[in-house]
Structure formats: C-alpha cells, structure tokens
Design a protein around this nucleic acid. Structure first.
Length: 443
RNA sequence: UCCUCGGUAGCUCAAUUGGCAGAGCAAUCGGCUGUUAACCGAUGGGUUGCAGGUUCGAGUCCUGCCCGAGGAGCCA
C-alpha cells in the first residue's frame, strides 16, 4: 500500500488509509471513510470507520473535543461518509489493533436509513442490495481474494512465456454447437452471439504466438439454477502449441498449485475472516492424482453408484470421486459421446477423447475442462458433420489445420468456481461483484 | 424444463385445533467515560405475495397465478 502523504484542505495532518495506521503510531493523521457501526457510553463515543483498506475504531471523548465535534456523533448514521483527524494509538481493545483518538471530525454526507443492518439478512434481500452488500466485511474479503486469484492467474502465465491474446465476445456462431447462446442482432450481418468460450480463437492465437491465454467473460443461456452456475462468468483459457494431453495436465496442476499457494501466502487475513479451513488448501501440491475415466467409473461402482459406462459424471459422482483425495483430482479420457467435437480421440480407443477435467476438493466440482485438440483436417471435417455443425462458419478454424497444423492443447478454468472453492463459500453468486443468473440481472 | 421448499413490520422470524397479528434488530426520544452485532428505558411502525373460494370468523383450510430459494439436467 502507498504511504500517502497528501493533505486535506484545512488539515495539517497527513492523510492515510486505515490499512497503513500502524505506520503512524503516536502521530496525528486524517482518514476518510464511511461509518461501519457506532456505539456510545454517553460521554465517550466509538465510531467504527471503514475505508476499503480496513476498519478503524475512532474514539471521541467529550472532554477532549469541541462540543460541535462531540455532537456530530449523534448525526452520524451507518454508512455516512466522513473524515476523521486524530492521534493513532495502539490498543488491544480496538479491532485491527490501532485506534484513533479523535481531535477533529467532518461529516461529508449523512446516509439516511441504510438498508443493510449489522444483523442477519436473507439472500434475496442481500442480492437486491448487492451494490451496498459489497461494503460488508465478508463481501470485501471475497472480492479481495478474487482479485488475488486473478492476479495469480496472470502472473503464472506471464511468468511462463505466455502472451495474453483475448478472444472476441461477439461471435458469429456457437463454439461447441450444443450450448444455448445469448443472441443479438448485428447490423446487416444477421445474428451475433455472446461467446461461451474463447477457445477456438485461442487456438488461432496459439498458432501465431506459441503459448497464449485469453481471459474474459463468457455467457451461457442455459436455464441452470444451482449454486455452481451463472449466466455470465469469467474464464481463463490457456492454449499451447505442440502440447499433448500429458503436457496439458502438467500445466493444469502446476497452475492450480501456484494459484492456491499464492492466495494462501497473500490473503491470510481475508481467509481468516471467511473462517476458511486453510489446512484443506495447504495440501494442494503437485502431483495431483490422475484417473483414467475407466478408473473413475470403478470408484463410483465401488461406492455403490449405479453408473452407466459412457455417461458424463454428474455433480454427485464428481463429489464421490473428489472425496477420495485431499487435493484436486484430474479425470482424463472421457467418452467422446459426452465431449465436444474439437477434442482429439485416443488413437487406441476411438470412443475416448484426450480430455481432462479437474475436480476441486470438498465437493466444489469441475473447475477445469480441457483437452488435446483435433489437429487433422479430414478428421475435424468429419467431426463437424457428425455433430451436425455447419461448415461455413468454421472455415477459418479449418484453416488452422490446412496451414502448418501441429498438436496442441489447452483448458479453461472457471474463475467463480475457483474463488468459491478457495474461499470455502457455498454459492458462486458471492464470488463475482454483480452476479447474472437465470432469475436475476439486477442491480 | 422437471422435483422439493418458501413468501407475515424496513430486516430476521414467531403466531397452539381456524378465534384480539407479536418479538428481536433497525428507526425516533431519553440514559450511560472503554464499547466490541455494546447495554438499559420509552415511542412509532402491518393491503400477512396477488386473485378467488369455504366459514359466524382465514396469516392458518381449498383453487389458480406471481415471485424467490435449493436440487436435477447441462456445464466452468
């Protein structure tokens, strides 16, 4: 955090943030923020001020301030904005360890009837007030960790020679041909669709740059209504030329280990506020278990699941498999029947794909889906026909197999599911600032 | 799309067999010099989701609708 030394007009004290108070012990400073809560014993007032960097207890003693400053306390309501000047003082009774002995106080704006009180609220009410809910300590911590995760994602790929090459959000056709897409009019060119994956374009970028990743919002118009689904979510998709399925799995596990361990090292305070059991994250170290689809099916049968070979794994199946391990598990070689057209088949088992899903522990489900891509022109053309996909919108994609085709692989990681897992929270709607779901597109 | 559950004060909830619609918090007023979701006292606050039905009487029972939550499918 910057050690800010600017001054407010009319104040001779350095302006700082609450997160930096420990640098100013026994010094008078000014902070700017919002009332988080207040208490009083009559001649001594306590104001909890938050400013985004922390929460500071400000103590107003009647005998030490002007009557105007002391009386200002009565006008302050929850979430009113104000500036406070006073001496920083180490005190174990204060949340955060430091408090401010108030010398001067200026109200900037009085908030009237702030709807979110320091008591319990229901989900619907909180989501209706999401724009205000973000100010609460818990949501603040989640957003901080989300930021840390995204930074770790980018640092990881940037540090390994990847180039960020983003894919378009408006696309002319479905990527996988199966999902339901959001549709919009596009001038004289007919329909355009909001992308459900940047992958196909990332494949083109990888042929130009070698190692790339794209990172952006993706959209699914499916009527999913579970704690793991949003209609708008963020996905990071690396794509690597010359990489096979094993290279892809090596990359995925190194990537997840890096992200989790980085968050553990940098966001301890936020994880503690969220009451996350970090011992469940400390075990997230390479190597991750790798299960062939056939082995995964065996585990399900051993656990009494009546599983039909060839089906995709359901949410309950994924939970049973992930519960066998203390770290993410990689399931590879899924049947072709439940995977996308672009996935390369196992040369020795044409019914299986060179695919891999990474299942997060503790029942958080699939956080990564990836594969080695089909790189043979004739085979890919055949797949398009088998999946009843039109050839014309994929001509550019077929070009990648006409002009110097090479083996290549990649995967997509869902940011919100990853945030939910690392934070240990129930529902992905709390992992994104403003969730978009089937029955909610406001605020 | 299907299954399950729910909708009562600004918020979280209660209301016995169908019998005067209540509490805590928030708000307002008063008290308190170390509070930690402070505490203590007082006051105001209701189209019980909407429409219809049964009944002397409906928050409660019946029918339809609306809205929401959890799950399935699909997926990250």
């Amino acid at each position: 955090m910057e050690n800010q030394m600017s001054e407010l007009p009319g104040s001779s004290k350095p302006v700082t943030t609450i997160g930096d108070l420990s640098k100013y012990d026994d010094t008078s400073v000014t902070i700017r923020g919002w009332v988080y809560n207040k208490r009083s014993s009559g001649k001594i007032h306590f104001i909890l001020v938050r400013d985004g960097s922390g929460i500071a207890q400000c103590v107003v003693v009647k005998s030490q301030v002007s009557p105007e400053v002391f009386g200002a306390f009565d006008l302050l309501s929850q979430e009113s904005s104000l500036t406070v000047t006073g001496k920083v003082h180490k005190d174990d009774r204060a949340p955060g360890g430091y408090e401010i002995q108030v010398e001067d106080l200026a109200i900037v704006h009085v908030a009237k009837d702030y709807p979110i009180t320091p008591k319990e609220h229901g989900t619907e009410f909180l989501m209706d007030h999401r724009h205000l809910w973000l100010r609460s300590a818990r949501q603040h911590a989640i957003l901080k960790i989300r930021h840390r995760i995204i930074k770790a994602v980018r640092d990881f790929f940037d540090g390994k020679g990847f180039t960020l090459v983003d894919s378009p959000i408006l696309t002319p056709a479905s990527v996988e041909g199966t999902s339901t897409l959001f549709e919009t009019e596009y001038f004289d060119l007919g329909k355009a669709y909001l992308t459900q994956s940047g992958q196909l374009y990332a494949e083109a970028s990888a042929m130009a740059m070698g190692k790339v990743y794209c990172f952006g919002p993706t959209f699914r118009a499916e009527k999913s209504k579970t704690r793991r689904h949003l209609t708008e979510f963020w996905m990071v998709e690396p794509e690597v030329a010359w990489a096979n399925l094993n290279d892809n799995m090596d990359l995925a596990e190194e990537f997840i280990e890096y992200v989790v361990q980085t968050v553990l090292g940098n966001s301890a305070e936020e994880l503690k506020l969220l009451e996350r059991d970090v011992t469940k994250l400390q075990t997230v170290k390479r190597p991750f278990p790798r299960l062939h689809y056939d082995e995964a099916v065996e585990i399900l049968k051993k656990n009494g699941v009546d599983f039909q070979y060839g089906n995709d794994l359901g949410a309950a199946d994924e939970t049973i498999i992930s519960q066998q391990y203390d770290r993410p598990v990689m399931v590879h070689h899924y049947p072709a029947a439940c995977k996308a057209f672009y996935m390369k088949r196992d040369p020795e088992r044409e019914d299986l794909t060179l695919s891999v899903d990474v299942l997060a522990p503790e029942g958080y489900g699939e956080i990564i889906g990836g594969s080695q891509r089909e790189d043979d022109y004739d085979t890919l053309l055949k797949r398009l026909e088998e999946f009843n996909l039109p050839r014309e919108p994929f001509e550019w994609y077929l070009d990648l197999r006409r002009y110097g085709s090479v083996p290549h692989s990649g995967f997509g990681l869902g940011i919100e599911r990853t945030v939910a897992w690392i934070c240990g929270i129930e529902h992905v709607r709390e992992t994104i600032p403003f969730a978009r779901m089937i029955y909610r597109n406001t605020p």
